[in-house]
Design a binder for these strands. Structure first.
Lengths: 361, 361
DNA sequence: TTGAAAGCGCTAACAT
DNA sequence: ATGTTAGCGCTTTCAA
């Protein structure tokens, strides 16, 4: 009788996983007395397998404590289940909220978020991007503009959906879910102008070499433009300290501004953190907010609601933004996106009026 | 002449990557006129390759915009370069700081952090863990205790270094880098007792089904124990609201506590966020801090330094904690850890005295 | 210093 | 409903 080829339906005498090695699909198939494909099906599409067989396989999986190796699966299926997310920092409640929302939206489809953050550093951004792409994400979500030419090229070459968030660039790379930081600035300026102020200032960050807060700068630009349009001086607009902007930025830059222009009536800070810091500094200096000085911020951070007086702020729902972005990713990857054209979602923004700004006397 | 087997040194007539497909190592090897192995070496250990060859290969890589596929590499080398991190939430500055520190420490060795968060949910924790393990991380870093039996078994079966952080359990699974939440509670209580208070309260979270803040509860336990040891009543210790604990927790639970026990003199909140919320609530109610009520927190969050009065808090350096954990991971994975015994690092804690607590009258 | 063979653990595509 | 074949894109190991 002719020697038959060893069939794929695993026989016990085949090389057995021994010792501490983690069980493979092969071990499971052997124990259950089926082929590897059947095991694979039980895992990915159980309905394709007869209940009885399914049971046996499931038992084998449980008994062995088998956990599939996604790296191998990715290689074979050409689907990694990764979605990449690039942020300037995670140490910012709003970016963390974006990550949170994204994760929630992606959980159901078993996508895994690969998070990278650049600390606002352009060189780091490029390094991170390369690392990310080596993991073959199926889509990439990123904040605002990619700055370096090489980074842009790498992104495009990856040939996966690119979703920009937390900014609405004039010339998006592809898909966008976000809001216009430029309009944030203009809206803030308009709001203060409408309250009757004329000596209006702003607190923003300065650029320091490769460290740059692009979105914050957009807000500053919008703010200045709106002042100019209204025929007001941009003299009280201050760029001070390097990103990331936090509480002490507000305290310190307010000090600088007051030193320079004690007559300023109202201030917009590029971030609520900075605005809160400014309010606290006012408390210390005996400057009444809003009676002596009106202050508003951006981001509508939780802390802004808690301080006294509560902070007027430009509100953007970042968690929702993350979820919308996640939805976009899912649509794109499932092919549900009927139209082939780019997604563009503006989640908008609104002024949340609280007590830190009043009308000019 | 006998037909020779097609050599591995890629010939042009071999199946060519066409169209939009991403270039593989094969394309690079072909363009550079070397074997795939040589390309691989240029990438992983350039010194093994002759400078001239190296140049040619590098040029080919650049020209094609080749980015290696780590999934394939992982499969072959059995090293994924992933380190898993499990957190309750990312929307907490201290956990974000841990992630930040870890990333920094791991960057140099090109490890990639796989972050998962459970939202304090035990069922989600298990799901997340399974997902994580399918990516074959080389080590796993997690906060505090794993609660479900299945989760524990999965972890152990993974047979990779396990580093617990942000708590020092009495019976660690393996390695620990952290501090004792129980001691945080005891230290806080002792601090207030030493200031001469006797009607001492605490603000913590309640457990709600599968949603539990284990570490916070440890702090509460320590706090109560220390009160008891001092012969004081634990009557003012309040568990209220479910995790995650934030600002409004402090405002609300303070209201509840004051309603119940208006005579409370000093309060410890399980989190600075809660403590800050409580201070703000006091401002609103016209309760002077610390003259009418002393308040201290835990975590030494940035915001605590900014409010008026600045918040006394138990300080733990979470970013450093993350970095130490990262260092531990690197040592473990590089085999640099000479001893085979578990790593146990206590990063300690300290009371940061500011103005929100005074001595009892 | 470089190359060839073998295979990592899975799944797509095609049988049966 | 289940099995077989043939890789996915790399690296390990050994040979030259």
């Amino acid at each position: 009788m002719a020697r038959t080829v060893q069939p794929d339906m695993e026989k016990a005498e085949n090389r057995t996983s021994q010792g501490k090695q983690r069980p493979t699909i092969r071990d499971v198939s052997r124990l259950a007395g089926v082929s590897r494909m059947t095991v694979s099906r039980v895992l990915s599409d159980p309905d394709l397998v007869l209940p009885a067989t399914r049971e046996r396989v499931s038992k084998a999986i449980a008994d062995l404590g088998y956990v599939p190796d996604r790296a191998a699966g990715s290689l074979a299926s050409r689907r990694t289940g990764f979605v990449a997310l690039m942020l300037p920092t995670l140490t910012n409640a709003n970016f963390a909220a974006v990550a949170h929302g994204l994760t929630e939206a992606l959980r159901e489809d078993d996508y895994h978020l690969l998070i990278a953050y650049t600390d606002y550093d352009l060189v780091e951004e490029e390094r991170q991007l390369r690392n990310l792409l080596a993991r073959r994400p199926e889509a990439i979500v990123l904040t605002g503009t990619i700055h370096r030419r090489t980074a842009s090229r790498m992104l495009l070459a990856a040939d996966i959906p690119i979703i920009e968030i937390a900014d609405l660039p004039s010339r998006p790379i592809e898909h966008v879910v976000g809001f216009s930081n430029y309009n944030v600035g203009r809206t803030a300026a308009r709001y203060l102008i409408n309250r009757g102020f004329s000596r209006i200032g702003a607190l923003g960050g300065a650029t320091d070499g490769d460290v740059i807060d692009h979105r914050g700068e957009e807000r500053m630009r919008g703010f200045e433009d709106e002042l100019r349009i209204a025929g007001l001086s941009t003299h009280h607009v201050l760029r001070h300290g390097k990103p990331p902007i936090s509480y002490d930025h507000g305290a310190q830059s307010l000090a600088v501004l007051l030193d320079r222009d004690p007559d300023v009536e109202a201030i917009f800070a590029v971030s609520d953190l900075s605005a809160v810091g400014a309010v606290m500094e006012c408390q210390r200096r005996g400057i009444a907010v809003p009676d002596d000085l009106s202050i508003m911020g951006f981001g509508d951070f939780e802390i802004g609601r808690e301080i006294n007086p509560p902070l007027t702020s430009i509100h953007v729902d970042f968690r929702a933004l993350g979820q919308r972005a996640g939805q976009a990713v899912r649509d794109l990857l499932s092919g549900k996106e009927t139209a082939r054209r780019p997604i563009a979602v503006d989640v908008g923004l609104s002024v949340t009026e609280r007590a830190s700004v009043k009308a000019a006397p």
